[in-house]
Design a protein around this nucleic acid. Structure first.
Lengths: 162, 162
DNA sequence: GGCAATTAGTTTCATTTGAAACTATATTCG
DNA sequence: CGAATATAGTTTCAAATGAAACTAATTGCC
């Protein structure tokens, strides 16, 4: 093979088949549709709703714990809590043991909203999932679990190789 | 049933099992890891990369067509093109037939970057997919197709019921 | 031809976002 | 004890974002 500096054509990249891109478009579409519902019907942003959602099932979390469970950052949580408190949907109380910690709960008003939003959320999810048969739903669940786990590693890997 | 105003407890909502939420967290993690790579290694933002990605496989698109294919909005495309042009990675030329349209292409410099980024992108995707067996990958592909389709309807449905 | 309505793309402006700095409390360790 | 360090949460400031207004060219229609 004389004079061979092989021309390395990049492997073809088709955005429509590129998993990160597909996930992003799908997630944005779904979140967009949901955000519109929450905003139109309940005056809630997605971060606000996420905070309410975790407090609904686990009252008494601190802001940091909320951030942990929702994969939001602490600034986002702080701001969401701020606006929820101004709307009297969330209340907080200093922790008895650690003065830095503020424990968050839904107020009765917040709980009423929570109880109204949950069915809407579940209905939207069901509308999305209605495209899948039960076996497919189970398969999706398993696949997403594996991908979420792997994505965690991926994040670490990237963070550790600067 | 005397005095019965049934207390309707909302169906329980567990964020960790709520599909829209899972998609959002997964997509954000993946996009975050990728964005870091693109930014660190090539000085590209995700919108910039998306524009380059479609132009790499389909040169001569207009900004509107790029927006269509990437699910970005036209403002985002306009800004990404602007910065790519300032970096001499993308060039544009007025369409001969329609004076409003500017046809976009990668410059040689842009193409060189494209050829360097593609393997990195594919490698990241492969790292993510390495958690799945071939049959699982095919299953995922089919499930995402159905969900993407359904999410489209969902968006429409929501838009049409104000 | 020429005026109204569309379409491509950019700019403006107000809002959202995130990184880093900051405040206040808690813990560690010499 | 008390200085150094760590953690919870807030504030600040600069950059990213998106809706709406805007410019410029085109098409439809009388």
């Amino acid at each position: 093979m004389p004079n061979s500096v092989a021309v390395k054509r990049a492997a073809r990249l088709d955005l429509d088949r590129f998993l990160p891109y597909r996930l992003s478009v799908l997630s944005n579409r779904v979140s967009g549709a949901i955000a519109r519902q929450y905003s139109d019907r309940f005056g809630l942003t997605i971060p606000e709703w996420r905070v309410m959602a975790v407090l609904g099932s686990t009252p008494g979390l601190s802001a940091r714990e909320v951030a942990e469970r929702t994969a939001m950052d602490k600034v986002q949580v702080s701001r969401a809590v701020d606006s929820l408190m101004r709307a009297r949907r969330v209340a907080r109380l200093a922790d008895a043991e650690d003065g830095r910690i503020l424990r968050l709960t839904l107020t009765p008003k917040g709980h009423a909203i929570y109880d109204a939003v949950v069915p809407v959320a579940l209905q939207l999810e069901e509308l999305l999932l209605s495209a899948l048969a039960p076996a497919e739903r189970r398969a999706l669940d398993g696949l997403l679990k594996k991908l979420a786990l792997q994505a965690g590693l991926l994040g670490d890997r990237v963070r550790k190789n600067p």
